[in-house]
Simulated scan of single mutants.
Amino acid sequence: MDDNSLLGKVVHSKSGRDRNRYFIIVGILNEDYVYISDGDLRRIEKPKKKKIKHLIFTDIIAQDIKELITNNKKVSNSMIRKFLQVEEV
């Protein structure tokens, strides 16, 4: 699995306290874990470490956020919130 293939993907949590919430993958730890953020409860400064098997992947990719992450630029929480808000509707 290519490291950058998961970055920026919108996922749906299927277990844990954050069940039924949408997140964006903002980092990849290894083949089992990723870092997710929703810009609200899980801010970009402290993303949640989550097992991949506890996530439902959508076909939606936050392309702007993915590019910022891959270029080591700053991603704002409001940017993540806005993207998830628009995509959930």
Rank of each mutant, 00 (worst) to 15 (best):
M1Q: 02
M1S: 07
M1F: 06
M1K: 06
D2F: 03
D3E: 07
D3S: 07
S5Q: 05
S5A: 10
S5W: 03
L6H: 00
L6C: 04
L6S: 03
V10N: 03
V10R: 03
V10S: 02
V11H: 07
K14C: 12
K14I: 15
S15G: 00
G16E: 02
N20L: 11
R21T: 11
Y22N: 10
Y22D: 09
Y22H: 09
F23W: 06
F23S: 09
F23T: 05
F23L: 07
I24T: 09
I24Y: 04
I24R: 01
V26Q: 08
G27D: 15
G27V: 10
G27T: 08
G27L: 11
I28G: 01
L29W: 06
N30P: 04
N30E: 03
E31K: 10
E31G: 00
D32N: 14
D32P: 01
V34H: 04
V34F: 08
V34D: 07
Y35G: 01
Y35D: 12
Y35P: 00
I36Y: 11
S37V: 14
D38H: 08
D38E: 07
D38F: 13
D40L: 15
D40A: 08
D40Q: 12
L41Q: 13
L41D: 13
R42L: 14
R42Y: 15
R43A: 06
R43K: 15
I44G: 03
I44V: 12
I44A: 01
K46Y: 14
P47G: 13
K49I: 14
K50T: 02
K51M: 15
K53H: 11
K53E: 06
K53C: 09
H54L: 03
H54S: 12
L55P: 02
I56L: 14
F57E: 03
T58F: 10
T58Y: 13
I60S: 06
I60T: 13
I60L: 13
A62H: 02
D64T: 09
I65D: 02
K66W: 08
K66V: 06
K66L: 06
E67F: 08
E67V: 08
I69L: 15
T70Q: 15
N71S: 15
N71H: 05
N72W: 09
N72L: 13
N72F: 10
K73S: 15
K73W: 10
K74R: 12
K74Q: 08
K74Y: 09
N77L: 06
N77F: 05
N77A: 06
M79E: 14
I80N: 05
I80W: 04
K82W: 04
K82C: 05
F83A: 03
F83L: 10
F83S: 02
F83N: 00
F83T: 04
L84P: 00
V86G: 00
V86N: 03
E87Y: 04
E88S: 15
V89Y: 11
V89D: 11
V89M: 13
V89H: 12
